[in-house]
């Protein structure tokens, strides 16, 4: 019986990796955005935190775009 164990391992690793990357980045983005947009808006930490948040969200969008690319064949 030709059960494709290799494929099963591949699917497991790929979906685990992608999910963790997206969820961690999105969570970091929310944490950073919240810090940047807090009451101490003009403090020194605001700028870099905001940039970090935007980078995190952009990375999530890129992964989502890759997902759509996979959904749409050719």
């Amino acid at each position: 019986m030709g059960i494709k164990w290799d494929n099963l391992v591949d699917v497991s690793l790929a979906s685990f990796g992608i999910t963790i990357v997206v969820v961690v980045l999105f969570s970091l983005g929310i944490a950073a955005w919240s810090r940047a947009g807090g009451p101490s808006d003009d403090s020194a930490g605001g700028g870099p935190a905001r940039v970090a948040a935007v980078l995190c969200f952009a990375a999530c969008l890129a992964v989502a775009a890759y997902g759509i690319d996979i959904i749409v064949p050719d």
């Binding site: 494929n7 699917v11 790929a14 979906s15 997902g67 996979i70």
Partner: peptide, 10 residues
């Protein structure tokens, strides 16, 4: 992720 990874890998 699971649906796309699995359909991508058949």
């Amino acid at each position: 992720a699971v649906i796309l990874a699995s359909s991508h890998l058949g």
